[in-house]
Amino acid sequence: MKTPLMLDTTRMAVHDGPGLRTTFFVKGCPLKCRWCHNPESISSKPQWARFPDKCQHREICTMDEAACPTGALKLYGKPMSIPDIVAKAREDKAFYKQSGGGVTLSGGEPLFFWEWAEELFKAFKAEGLHTCIDTSLYAPPVAVERMLPLVDMWLPDFKAENADRHKTHTGVPNGLIKDNLKLLVKAGAKLEVRMLVVPGCTDGQDAADRHRYLRSIGIRDEDVAELEYMDLARSKYAALGMPDTMPPKPR
């Protein structure tokens, strides 16, 4: 079983499904989207990041994240066991109960580690937690089938309708993704499809094509959410030493 390293956890998340939620981010993704706003989540290996503008202690820096108070030095990717994740999720149970919230697994691509995700979600369910998964659906259909009974709400991305354009922007074709979307519809899964609209890249005709396709496979408009593109992650590319591929955002 492939086990991911974990990125930070967001408590009281309000955009990752209904209610107040705790969102866990896995590190590792088979896609490489040009506009990726979490570049630290692409590689599945640990990565050091340095934010020079935040550094206030250059003279005494020991290259130890634990001693860096300003977050100028950051290690992305730490192991976290399933019991530890569940324990963290359990902390905010009172808030889920009042708000109709729960836990969300995001990334990275959670289904990249689907056998592990299945174990994790079984543990979530044993705790009685409402579960969401934020996924590109670029995964073998068996992964979706196995997760179906464990996921209360799916938050799949639909990045481009045209297979070639999908490959150009994300590095992979979208055949599997479309198959999995159909599978979710067929299974009657509760879902909210997210469509990022990147100006000059996946807007206009591209967005219209996506809407048309989703309708054609039986997804209702109210289950589709367009997301605004933000190019705020540029400093992270630099900190990680990765080439910045983010398209410009017209001001």
Binding site: V14, H15, G19, L20, A94, Q98, S99, G100
Partner: peptide, 18 residues
């Protein structure tokens, strides 16, 4: 972001009640 989210008032109420 919580306040601005569509369920702002309800979300804050749930938070306080918790």
């Amino acid at each position: 972001s919580l306040a601005k989210a569509s369920f702002g008032a309800a979300g804050i109420a749930a938070f306080l009640r918790s």
